[in-house]
């Protein structure tokens, strides 16, 4: 009985999330557009996340290189270290790690912000004052998240590659130019394009789930914490599911 309730509530959640997304799409195309709110959110969501994302990206590149080196030496392909790290970063590590960090930072903040607004009935007040709260709060945030995550992911890739360059040079001696040549010689469009496109979906997922969780937060202070927490958890899971989908689709299309 308990199980059936859980299953039912799960499907109900999926259904209402889909409706929420549909509402977002319809609202997105209907004017008036909240441009200034969008820019403000872009600044907060994108620019303010750069230090965190840059740091994690740098460390990932460095660590991945150092971790891979012994095995590359075992297989006698130490010289291919930049190529393999470059492919790993561009194809998978860069987009996914950035999206997860982004979900942790932005998903929770959106969830908590909208949740507290809901709890303190600011959203209802907005509606009364004549502003469309969905447009002002949700659309701007979701759009900002959708467009900022790819930007962050690309910058994170660049910073990761630099970290990898430093990692290669800890025990080896490779000029930056040679590192650069080796990385780009091994890369192809089919490595970059799917990885770049899937970050839009990651960003959209993080934004929409954070907003949904905040927008439908349960009453009370507890509800705010819960919505922030579940926003991070669900968006993280969603990122992995989307990643799986993305790799299957690129495989089907023959880009892999």
């Amino acid at each position: 009985m308990n199980n059936s309730v859980l299953v039912k509530s799960f499907f109900a959640e999926v259904g209402s999330l889909s409706r929420f997304s549909g509402k977002f799409l319809s609202m997105f195309f209907i004017p008036p557009y909240e441009i200034s709110a969008l820019f403000k959110q872009c600044y907060i969501i994108g620019y303010k996340s750069l230090p965190l994302v840059g740091l994690t990206g740098f460390i990932m590149g460095l660590v991945l290189t150092m971790q891979l080196r012994p095995f590359m030496i075992d297989y006698g392909v130490e010289s291919q270290l930049p190529a393999i790290v470059g492919i790993a970063i561009i194809r998978e590590i860069g987009p996914v790690i950035t999206a997860l960090i982004f979900a942790g930072k932005i998903g929770s903040s959106i969830g908590a912000e909208l949740g507290s607004m809901k709890v303190t009935e600011q959203i209802d007040a907005m509606e009364v004052s004549g502003t469309n709260p969905f447009k002002y709060l949700v659309v701007s945030r979701v759009l900002a998240a959708t467009f900022m995550l790819p930007v962050l992911a690309v910058l994170s890739d660049a910073i990761s590659l630099y970290g990898s360059y430093l990692g290669v040079n800890i025990k080896g001696d490779t000029s930056f130019h040679f590192f650069w040549t080796q990385v780009f010689d091994s890369l192809e469009f089919r490595d970059v394009l799917p990885a770049f496109i899937k970050t839009y979906f990651f960003g959209f997922a993080v934004g929409i789930i954070g907003c949904y969780k905040g927008y439908f937060s349960s009453k009370g202070t507890e509800g705010v914490g819960k919505s922030a927490n579940s926003a991070v958890v669900v968006s993280s899971i969603m990122i992995f599911i989307l990643d799986l989908l993305a790799v299957q689709i690129t495989d089907l299309l023959g880009f892999n």
Binding site: L50, V154, L155, F184, L187, V192, F196
Partner: peptide, 17 residues
């Protein structure tokens, strides 16, 4: 911030191309 990212992306595509 956005231009930096865009320029890296363009560079990436250009190098591969």
């Amino acid at each position: 911030f956005i231009l930096a990212s865009l320029s890296f992306l363009i560079l990436l595509f250009y190098m591969i191309g």
